[in-house]
Simulated assay, not measured.
Amino acid sequence: MWLIGDVELIQQKGRIGFFHYGPRMWMIGGIGPLKALQNSAQRDDIIQRILSEYPVVSFAKDGTLYRLRLNPATPIDSCEYDSPPDHLLGRGRLDAQDHPVLYCAQDIEGCVHECRVTVEDELYIATLHPARPLKLLDLTELLLEEDTTEFESLDLAVHMLFYAPEHSYPISRAIAIAAMKSGFDGVVYPSYSSQVRSGLMPAETVGYGISIRRAARYIPRLTGHAKTGVYPNVALFGRPVRDGIVEIACINRLILHKASYDIRFGPVISH
């Protein structure tokens, strides 16, 4: 309200008009598949689409994953780097009470972001290698959907789901359990900290919208642009360290040497 006088003066002197241009509703979650995922009666149909439309990738035996632990009781014990014990299950994005998940990343910085470490923590990191090729569902891939608008896009729905906080966990857990039952060893999914790591917060509407995705069918380099800022995490189902699905190559102490922040200011809105 305190801008009304300024707006009227600019309109008068500049002979121009102002009008409110609100967001297209898909930008704030008005996407059909995302709404269906929030409806327990419709959720399974969308999950089956996710399982069939997202690509299957094979994580090779020579691939590397990292698992970070904060203040482990016995840092040298390999069990410390497996999925959390039963009494801690059901707190994460993909694990449930009867569905343990080993969360790891393909880069060390990703582990640090996900674990929200402080300088007071004692940090230990395990380097993991698969004992065999792993069958993973890649939820970070760009779906090139034909004749689809932003309001109907499964691709945008899944990305928004994984950028949402804890209220989205029941949905992402349901996807993980369905993937496990379908024979996957785990999933590759967008890190919740992707936007703050890349600085793309909020995400640009052109790159995040459907226009770049459509153009990527004809200009392959645009696929990379549309995926800019998506940092992948890997979640492996069960207890892969105990079961020999992944092997620990080494364990190291991790010391935070320096942290830096890129900060900007925003308005204070009083309700």
Rank of each mutant, 00 (worst) to 15 (best):
M1D: 14
V7A: 12
E8Y: 11
Q12A: 14
R15T: 05
I16L: 15
F19H: 12
H20V: 12
Y21C: 05
G22M: 00
P23D: 06
I28P: 00
G29K: 08
G30K: 01
G30A: 06
I31K: 00
K35C: 03
A36T: 03
N39W: 09
S40Q: 11
A41E: 14
A41I: 07
Q42T: 05
R49N: 08
S52F: 04
E53N: 07
P55S: 06
V56S: 08
S58N: 14
S58P: 01
S58L: 08
S58H: 13
K61T: 15
T64F: 10
R67Y: 13
L68G: 01
A73D: 15
D77Y: 07
S78E: 09
C79F: 11
P84A: 13
P84T: 04
D86E: 11
H87Y: 14
L89N: 06
L89R: 14
L94S: 09
D95R: 03
Q97D: 11
V101R: 03
L102K: 02
D107K: 05
D107P: 01
I108T: 07
C111H: 02
H113F: 15
E114R: 07
E114A: 09
V117W: 03
V117N: 04
E120H: 13
D121G: 05
I125F: 02
A126V: 08
L128M: 08
L128Q: 07
H129V: 13
P130N: 02
R132Y: 13
R132M: 15
R132D: 06
L137F: 02
T140E: 03
E141Y: 06
E145N: 12
D147A: 08
T148K: 01
T149Y: 01
F151V: 05
F151N: 10
E152C: 06
E152H: 08
L154Y: 03
D155C: 13
A157I: 00
V158T: 00
V158D: 00
V158L: 07
V158W: 00
H159E: 10
L161V: 04
F162V: 03
Y163D: 12
Y163N: 12
A164M: 06
P165K: 01
P170A: 10
S172H: 07
I177G: 08
I177R: 15
A179G: 02
K181I: 02
V188E: 06
Y189V: 05
S191K: 06
Q195A: 13
R197L: 14
S198T: 03
G199Y: 07
M201N: 11
P202L: 03
V206M: 12
V206E: 09
S211R: 14
S211F: 12
R213A: 13
R214E: 09
A215I: 01
R217E: 09
R221L: 15
T223E: 15
G224F: 13
H225W: 14
T228D: 13
T228Q: 14
Y231N: 04
V234Y: 06
F237W: 01
G238N: 02
R239H: 02
V241S: 04
R242Q: 14
D243C: 04
G244Y: 04
I245C: 02
V246S: 00
E247N: 15
I248T: 05
L254I: 04
I255M: 13
H257R: 14
Y261K: 10
I263P: 02
G266A: 10
P267C: 08
P267G: 10
V268C: 09
V268Y: 04
I269Q: 00
S270Q: 09
S270M: 09
